[in-house]
């Protein structure tokens, strides 16, 4: 094994181009587990922890460009206003020790259906900034997850950053597990209201081969809110609308039975989380819009 230790981003891209099989290691909270247990013996480890840009974020007019290695702890502490869904999701990851090391770049690299950043990124609307010596491109988050633990990165590409739209309305994240700390999600749900475009977006974790959006549910809710003039009036979402939204979210799932839960349970729990997060976010939207008028 070789340990590659680029001191800068360009050097890292060159190393990845030269050794496309090199395994990037950021926080190491996925990679080291695999190495410790002998599940992985990469020829090259490509250490990304010495590249300052990856640990930084920039807040622009519309969004945040979040460096791939910004640890979850920093997201929770610094980006709660701009990225509330992702901050909530970050807080549910593992433990303080893991959150001090692990970040969104690693979560995307692993692309586990259970990764907690994914539902929040899907709901907020995000793009993954991938770069290689050939150039840089933005991959829409909806196109990023290509299969179970597979993503759209080319072998010579690294994730530079994630561009996440700044919240223009309330966002929620909900996760089912056996306790508060140190649990891989049985299933998870992210919801973001986007009053600027009068749309809602969802993200579902651990209930399909990849993280997914519940598109039919989003379309149904968008139409229901539009029809009722609800974005303007701020009137409550009726129980029947919430119920239908929940059913459509459940129906979007393609879960499996595994040690953490059964497929039936996951479908059910996603529906419950969808209804609850809709209630929480909509109530919060009503409060703020009432305050504004």
């Amino acid at each position: 094994m070789d340990f590659l230790r680029p001191a800068g981003w360009e050097e890292a891209l060159a190393a990845k181009a030269e050794h496309p099989t090199a395994v990037p290691i950021a926080g190491g909270t996925d990679v080291m587990v695999e190495i410790n247990f002998g599940h992985r013996r990469p020829e090259y480890l490509l250490d990304l922890t010495r590249i300052p840009e990856l640990h930084e974020w920039e807040t622009g007019e519309d969004g945040v460009r979040l460096g791939a290695s910004v640890p979850y702890t920093k997201i929770m502490e610094n980006l709660r206003a701009e990225l509330p869904g992702l901050a909530l999701a970050s807080h549910t990851v593992a433990s303080p020790q893991i959150r001090n090391r692990g970040g969104v770049g690693g979560n995307l690299g692993t692309a586990s259906p259970a990764g907690d950043a994914h539902p929040a990124l899907l709901a907020a609307g995000a793009e993954v900034e991938a770069e290689s010596v050939r150039g840089s491109r933005l991959i829409p988050i909806d196109a990023f997850y290509t299969g179970v633990k597979r993503n759209a990165l080319q072998p010579d590409e690294l994730i530079r950053a994630v561009h996440v739209r700044k919240a223009d309305g309330p966002q929620q994240f909900s996760k089912v597990g056996t306790r508060n700390a140190m649990v891989i999600a049985v299933c998870a749900f992210g919801l973001a209201l986007h009053p600027d475009t009068r749309t809602v977006r969802t993200g579902i974790g651990s209930a399909a081969p990849t993280p997914i959006r519940a598109r039919a549910a989003e379309e149904f809710l968008n139409a229901a809110l539009e029809e009722g003039g609800s974005w303007d009036s701020g009137k409550a979402v009726t129980p029947s609308v919430a119920q239908r939204f929940a059913e459509l979210c459940s129906a979007a799932c393609a879960p499996i039975d595994d040690v953490r839960g059964t497929a039936d349970y996951r479908r059910h729990a996603v529906g419950v989380m969808a209804r609850r997060t809709l209630t929480w976010t909509w109530e919060s939207y009503r409060d703020t819009s009432k305050g504004a008028s």
Binding site: G28, M32, V33, D47, A94, S95, P96, Q97, I98, N100
Partner: peptide, 22 residues
């Protein structure tokens, strides 16, 4: 595997699981 915390050390002042630091 990062589950137990018994290997916790400070790395540049930050608590981490030393079993997961290369």
């Amino acid at each position: 595997q990062g589950e137990c915390g018994s290997c916790t050390v400070l790395l540049d002042g930050v608590p981490v699981c030393s079993c997961l630091v290369a």
